[in-house]
């Protein structure tokens, strides 16, 4: 989970209160990754334990401001400098569903079409959300990422359909 590093990145811009970190985290990720305040404070206390952030004095309202340490900046730089690995195994339910449908000899075309219509609905919703929030570049890029993922799924569905249509095995089953 990148919450640790995400909070460090926000703190690199200057000291912040916990509730500020939560609001900024959600704003940067376009509310696609909601955090509860408990997660923020748990993460902050672990960061403090590991020497990556330092808490200030409590103010009169009981709030504590957190500051990033040198070690915290180094950890953030390490994170930015390290590529993210693709997950080792595909755990996508759709992939498994289509593989199983082909194996079981089911008619895959209606499954593909139903999924395509549903994914297009998602893509339409994301596109509207992005048009509405084009001002914040971080938010826009997060929505763009989700759009690219939905788009990749649509392309993959087209590909499945074309491959299955050309496969003598599936043609035989559907005959």
């Amino acid at each position: 989970m990148a919450i640790r590093q995400g909070l460090l990145a926000l703190l690199s811009r200057g000291p912040r209160y916990g509730y500020q970190l939560r609001a900024e985290f959600e704003a940067s990720t376009g509310a696609t990754w909601p955090l509860n305040i408990g997660q923020v404070y748990t993460t902050l206390s672990r960061l403090e334990r590991d020497g990556l952030v330092a808490p200030g004095e409590q103010d009169d309202q009981g709030r504590v401001v957190y500051t990033i340490t040198e070690a915290g900046r180094a950890e953030m730089a390490r994170w930015f400098g390290t590529p993210v690995a693709q997950a080792d195994r595909p755990r996508d339910e759709l992939v498994i569903k289509l593989a199983m449908a082909v194996t079981a000899g089911a008619d895959v075309r209606p499954i593909i079409q139903a999924q395509r219509t549903a994914t297009m609905g998602t893509l339409q919703r994301l596109t509207r959300a992005r048009r509405a929030s084009a001002e914040d570049p971080a938010q826009r890029l997060v929505l763009d990422s989700m759009i690219f993922q939905a788009e990749a799924e649509q392309r993959w569905l087209d590909h499945c359909e074309a491959v299955l249509a050309a496969s003598p095995q599936t043609q035989e089953r559907q005959a």
């Binding site: 079409q113 395509r116 994914t119 297009m120 339409q124 788009e151 649509q154 392309r155």
Partner: peptide
């Protein structure tokens, strides 16, 4: 044929 552009539409007809 690009889903990302079709998604700007109010309706998408397949």
């Amino acid at each position: 044929h690009e889903p990302r552009y079709a998604a700007w539409a109010d309706r998408v007809v397949f």
